[in-house]
Computed example of a mutant assay.
Amino acid sequence: MSINFLNDTLIIADHKFSSRLMIGTGKYKTTSELKQCIVNSNCDIITVAIRRAQSTTKSIDNNWITDLDWQNKWLLPNTAGCKTAEEAIRVAILGRQFVKKLGQVNNNFVKLEVIPDSKNLLPDPIGTLKAAEYLITQGFDVLPYINADPILAKQLEELGCVTVMPLASPIGSGQGIKNLSNIQIIIDNANVPVVIDAGLGSASDVALAFELGADAVLVNTAIAKALIPEQMATAIKMATQAGRLSYLSGRMPISSNALASSPNTGIIN
């Protein structure tokens, strides 16, 4: 059966996206570098920390974010920097107001992060559940950032979250996928898109995420801290496409024995 890769659409909360690569906006050296990486990545979804966006300007009209083309990109506000559920809820509400001012009136997305651990930056499962439950009642489409915990992922899905976003390894570490077995369980049991987030460090990490069956990835540091970020953005885009196409194609079975490529029949003696 042939699969039309061009029609392979990512759907989150009834919104359709042609790219399965989401891009973060922190850690770039310059705004121009960030903008070029966005172009090179061909991403549809861009995440912005609302606390950072609010603190860099007195008015949204003076923020660099307004320079981006929000007619063709989707803003995913996130609650990075929040240590409690209550704090994350307040920032999420600010984020939705921020998005509306940019003209995306139908955008109720929020990437929910509740991180009290300032050393290892690991998300709080209880705080995340608590905040997600409330935000869903307020009409938010919640994309929760979590540890690679299959039970928590299923609980958040049943609560009404529109994705789950397990970390591959500690945020910003570039260690790649260190929670492979748990992430595979999450993917196998999810009925919402699974977005691998945090710890991806290279194009090969991204390709592996998709070969496992992930629906999307969110990448920031791997691009922003590369020697040549603009080139890495292109590499990550290509890895997204290659990994997804590889998954859709269905890999060959793994054998414990060597299998000859050529048949034994018809051999010339």
Rank of each mutant, 00 (worst) to 15 (best):
I3L: 15
N7W: 09
D8Y: 05
H15P: 05
K16P: 04
S18V: 10
T31A: 14
K35F: 12
K35Q: 12
N42F: 11
I45H: 02
I46W: 02
I50M: 04
I50K: 02
A53M: 07
Q54V: 15
D61N: 12
D61Q: 13
N62T: 07
W64E: 10
I65C: 07
Q71R: 15
L76N: 02
P77T: 00
C82I: 01
E87H: 07
A88I: 04
V91I: 15
K100A: 06
K100S: 04
N107S: 06
N107E: 06
N108M: 03
F109E: 00
D117E: 04
K119W: 02
F140C: 06
P144R: 00
N147R: 07
D149Y: 07
E158K: 15
L159R: 09
L159K: 15
C161H: 03
T163F: 04
S169H: 10
P170T: 05
P170E: 09
G172A: 03
G174V: 04
N179A: 08
N179Q: 14
L180P: 08
I186P: 02
I186E: 05
I187A: 08
D188W: 09
A190F: 10
L208S: 11
E211W: 09
L212A: 05
D215R: 07
A224D: 06
A226T: 03
E230Q: 15
T234E: 15
K237W: 13
A239R: 03
Q241D: 13
L245C: 11
S246H: 08
M252A: 14
L259V: 13
